[in-house]
Each structure stands twice: as structure tokens, then as C-alpha cells.
């Protein structure tokens, strides 16, 4: 990847492998994550907060998968869009309307526009420079939000959100039932969009750009524009996830904009597996469950546990949890040789 001369087009990846969805028994697998999510709602109602958090991070991680996984845009600044979404949803509910749908749309659109604009500015660069630019954007926003206490509440966070009922009926309350279903619904819609995008001709050209931008340019693909559009979609999705967090907690803190947030979403993506979309479910769920369990049992060592997990994943499970079945299938063959 680092050496443009020697990087050939990769073999057809997992994205190609399951391109055809028909009603075969295999395709029932697509229902599993949703069935699990709904089942847990009934099985562990006391853990609803954690599950809602996982769903939100799944959405954020899918958005990262579009940018980093499929398009190869190396970013450590996705928290910027997550944060824009969160603050927009929060501020809308305080100053304009408490309607969670209007707030969600506003947050998504605004984050998407921010993605398009910053994407236009930075996507002609690659590698470390791009990484630094994305980092700088997020850091800029974070420090601005910290300073602009009148608008954002600064370090204390944005307080006093007042939410209306979802569809005018369902109340956002302490039990978090509405928040859970809202998160699940928004995630499902975005999931369908993402699933469609990466299998469309547009998505295929994005895949080509990641593998070799120069060759794609040579066959006439508008590389820069395609990347900008993908980045914009990804940003909009991150904005939705941000809005969901603010609805879940009815509070927006500065952490939504921090480097750590950008880092965590990248961790979840790598942990689950890039370019799979489904990897996001595993990555987010494993990360959050390990984090919470570690925090309960070894409160002082939780960072170390996550850090060690990261190191091990990068060293030994490069393609994430989603690649485990493939690795297991490959093993016996190797032994036979």
C-alpha cells in the first residue's frame, strides 16, 4: 500500500464475495445482528443503556468503515462530525424545537455539509499529511467548543436539552426504551444505505481508488470528487450517530470532539474488520463490553486492558474479528501441505 509501484489490485475481497443477496439460507445470516439486538432488548432490559450505546457506536463505526475501510481515507478526526451532530441535535432541542426527527435531520445534514467542505479542502492529500489535517480539524473544533462557553457550555457540557416525543407519541425517559428503538431504527436505515453504496458502481469505483488511485485516474474516474462524496456521506452518518448520543444522555460533553473519540472508533473498526460493514457490530460490541467489564473489575487497569487488546489485534488479527472464520478455514489446509 505504501509503495504505489508495487501495489497490484488486490484479490476480490469480502465485499465482492457476498455481492449477491438472494433469499438463500446463507442470506438469513443478514438477519442475525438485528435479531440479536432485538432479543437483548427483551432478555436484558437492565442493560438497555449499554445496548443503546453499542448501537450508536456501530453506526459511527460503519461511517468510519465507509471512509477508512472502503475509501482508504486515513482519518483521525472523525470525532469532528460526531461532535457536530451531537452539538447540533443538542442546540436544536434547546433553541429551536425538541422534535427528535427534525433535530436528527439537521444534525445529519450539517455534519454532511461539514464533511463535504472539509473533504474538498483536504482530500487531495494522502497518508500522514491527510491524517494530520483531519486531526487538526477535530482539534480546532474541540478547542473552539471549549472556548465558546456561551454556545456549547464549554468544559461543563451542554445542559438543559428538552426533547419532544418521538413521532409525538414515544417519550424519551429515564428507562431509555425510546432511545434504544430510535437508535436501532436510525442504524437500520443507514445500514441499508451503506450496504447499497458499497455494492453500487460508485462503491466499486471507491474500492478501486483505495487500491490504486493513479490507475483509476488513468481510466477517467474523477477520483477527488468520488472521495469527497464518500467522505460527505460518512460524515453525515457520523453526525447521525452524534445526534443519537445526545438524545440518549440528553447532554453533550466535550469528549464527543476529542482525539480519543476518533481513536476509539478506529479501534472498533479494526477490531471488527474493515470493508465488511458487519465488522462494526462486532467491533463496537466487543470494545464496549470489554471496556465496561474491565472498568467494573479492574478500574485502574481498564486503559491498559484496552491498550493490550489493541496491540494484539493489530499484530495477530489484522483483519479483525470478521476474518476469524476465514482463518479457521485456512488452518487445516496449511497443515495438510
Amino acid at each position: 500500500m505504501n509503495d504505489p509501484v508495487n501495489s497490484n489490485f488486490e484479490n476480490r475481497g469480502p465485499a465482492m464475495a457476498n455481492m449477491n443477496i438472494s433469499m438463500s439460507p446463507k442470506s438469513l445470516g443478514h438477519l442475525v445482528p438485528w435479531a440479536v439486538a432485538i432479543a437483548f432488548f427483551f432478555l436484558f432490559p437492565e442493560r438497555l443503556g449499554q445496548w443503546t450505546e453499542i448501537l450508536i457506536w456501530v453506526l459511527f463505526t460503519i461511517s468510519m468503515d465507509l471512509a477508512l475501510g472502503y475509501a482508504g481515507i486515513v482519518t483521525l478526526g472523525h470525532a469532528a462530525f460526531f461532535g457536530i451532530g451531537a452539538y447540533t441535535a443538542g442546540l436544536m432541542s434547546i433553541h429551536v424545537t425538541g422534535d427528535p426527527i427534525i433535530g436528527m435531520v439537521a444534525a445529519t445534514v450539517l455534519a454532511g455539509i461539514a464533511g463535504l467542505i472539509t473533504g474538498m479542502l483536504i482530500l487531495h492529500t494522502t497518508g500522514v499529511t491527510l491524517l494530520m489535517l483531519t486531526l487538526a480539524i477535530a482539534a480546532m473544533l474541540e478547542n473552539w467548543a471549549n472556548r465558546a462557553t456561551k454556545i456549547t457550555g464549554g468544559d461543563d457540557g451542554l445542559q438543559g436539552m428538552e426533547l419532544g416525543n418521538l413521532f409525538g407519541i414515544f417519550e424519551f425517559n429515564f428507562f431509555g426504551v425510546t432511545a434504544f428503538w430510535y437508535a436501532l431504527g436510525v442504524l437500520f436505515i443507514w445500514f441499508l444505505i451503506a450496504y447499497r453504496i458499497v455494492r453500487s458502481p460508485f462503491g466499486r469505483s471507491i474500492d478501486g481508488i483505495r487500491q490504486n488511485a493513479n490507475r483509476m485516474r488513468a481510466i477517467g474516474t474523477p477520483v477527488w470528487w468520488r472521495l469527497v462524496v464518500m467522505y460527505g456521506v460518512s460524515a453525515a452518518m457520523a453526525g447521525s450517530a452524534g445526534a443519537l448520543t445526545s438524545y440518549k444522555t440528553e447532554f453533550v460533553g466535550l469528549t464527543v470532539l476529542q482525539l480519543l473519540t476518533s481513536g476509539i472508533v478506529a479501534v472498533m473498526l479494526i477490531l471488527g474488520g474493515q470493508k465488511t460493514i458487519y465488522g462494526a457490530f462486532f467491533g463496537a460490541a466487543i470494545y464496549i463490553m470489554v471496556r465496561d467489564t474491565a472498568a467494573e473489575t479492574y478500574p485502574f487497569l481498564s486503559e491498559a486492558i484496552i491498550g493490550i487488546m489493541l496491540i494484539l489485534v493489530v499484530l495477530f488479527l489484522e483483519d479483525g474479528v470478521m476474518s476469524v472464520p476465514k482463518i479457521l478455514r485456512r488452518r487445516p489446509k496449511k497443515a495438510a501441505e
Binding site: 478506529a266 491498550g307 489493541l310 496491540i311 493489530v314
Partner: peptide
Amino acid sequence: VLLTFGLAFV
């Protein structure tokens, strides 16, 4: 990025 991030965490 992620591996060294992990080291920093540790």
C-alpha cells in the same frame, strides 16, 4: 496508529 495508540494507553 492503532498499535502505538495502544502502547500509549498502556
